[in-house]
Design a protein around this nucleic acid. Sequence first.
RNA 1: GCCGCCAUCGUCUAGUGGUCGAGGACACCAGCUUCUCAAGCUGGGAACACCGGUUCAACUCCGGUUGGCGGCACCA
Length: 546
Amino acid sequence: MAIQTSKLISTKKETEEQPILIQPGQVRVRIAPSPTGFLHIGTARAALFNYLFAKKYQGIFIIRIEDTDPERSKPEFEKNILDSFKWLGMDWDEGPEVEGEYGPYHQSKRGDIYKKYTNQLLKEGKAYHCFCSKEDLEAHRQYLLSIGQPPRYSGKCASLSKKEVEEKLARGEKSVIRFKVSPKEVEFEDLIRGKIKFDASLIGDIVIAKDLTSPLYNYACVIDDVEMKISHVIRGEDHIPNTPKQILLYEALNFPVPKFAHLPLILGPDRTKLSKRHGAVSIAQYKKMGYLPEALVNFMVFLGWNPGTEREIYSIRSLIKEFSLDRVQKGGAIFNIKRLDFLNGFYIRQKTLEKLTNLCLPYLIEAGFIKELGGNPGNPEETEKLGLFKEEKATFQIKETGEGISFETLTRIIAIYQERLKKLSEILELTDFFFKEKLNYSKNLLKWREMSDKEIGLALDTLNWSLSKIKEGDWTKENLEKVLLPEAKRFNNKIKKPIEDRGYLLWPLRVALTGKKASAGPFEIAEILGKEKTLKRIKEARGLMK
RNA sequence: GCCGCCAUCGUCUAGUGGUCGAGGACACCAGCUUCUCAAGCUGGGAACACCGGUUCAACUCCGGUUGGCGGCACCA
């Protein structure tokens, strides 16, 4: 029975209203970005809601490029938008075939479709040519505003006779096409907000096309949503005022009206619609900063939706199961980057080391820390010919020092910073000391508590002396600890400090190795650095104390 | 100005008339751990915008006030 598998989506508190039954296969939704900029986080979230809704009901998710404004639409933006969707894990299900693949739909390629309907509207007298100049329109608009009236078109050209219109057209006078907006009440049932009413007499006749094949947003949108058999229009709240205009167009064209669901907006910290002035707003920027797609998806979906349970971690797959439109919030949600950072750190900690290393590699390369060699990882001899590398299987080279470094060693570096990483890009500031010849820090940093210069020097000498005794082959984190921990006690005794405070010996070590006041543990760092470099850095630190 | 939408901790939110002396997460603070920073664990502070009404009972329903936001293009 269909009832068994169908899901019930009832608009809340509408007991008299027939519940809306959604059955698998009948859901068709779309996201309609315009290629006038990189994929915006708000568009991405709207797309995600559409995508989840479609997948939940085994429906179809469509991407439609709204490139009707030739002035502002750019192919590079379209590429970025499509790439970003794919990166986030949202693939579209349908579109015109381009080289064996489904491309997205383009409004710019659908001129003939719009033309057909525009001619129909014109013929039926539901639309008319308007010859008013932009200047006149603007002046009229300002006048209405000044007397507290809603700025709407006077309807002047609607009364032009057929003959007048033909004459003007023949003379080549510039015109646009206006739709006669009936002055009546328009009402619709929003799946998220319930009943919404508008008085269309306040709207005035709207321009629907610049000419027969150049439709404007509200018009092209209606035609395409019908042509593409869109069942549910899920979009931002900022489109609520467009909805009555579109409904009137559906009616004029004798089209069935789809269901509408208006999502709350994503807000900046000042509670206004998230925009460029709030900082990064494109998916591409977040990708570049080192945010993971799974973190972004998890974060975005919780902006205005929640599953009603205490679970907060969801993959796009698990979201498909849980998603429902009636758990969507009505109020706007502030974009809280701290929470995104938390989620991103969480997902970074979940990664396997190998994956995480691969993710970090581009950052290390782009920063010029390392470069990739053409060598064969399985053939150390060949690699050695390319540079002078001691390390086997070196497939990368540290640019500053010329040393070879293997993927495996890079993995060990990433490993000790995995839990400290919130964004991939942070790997640079965290691990730069592994890739530098010489560290640059002030000697004050070597000081633990109230140590004197002399004591610091002594600590460094002690470190040098005790570490020198460890053989290369025994240079492991465990052995270093075994040697240094008792040494720390002896050292504290010597300089008459509390025996338990290992900082007197270990802090100078850490700083000597990293040049930083915060880092991973000195033993694991020393292990990766190797005996030679560790001792060299201790000596360099000692040099600072002279 | 006009039209519309919205309103629970700093933030995202749970809550569909009694189970709420309001729950969770992020953030913040404190403690544990500790050479530092993280991570982890434990604990803490923190909210129903306001005024009426309905009701035995209101964060929950209704009305209003206030506040915030969105829209008002030959952009989308």
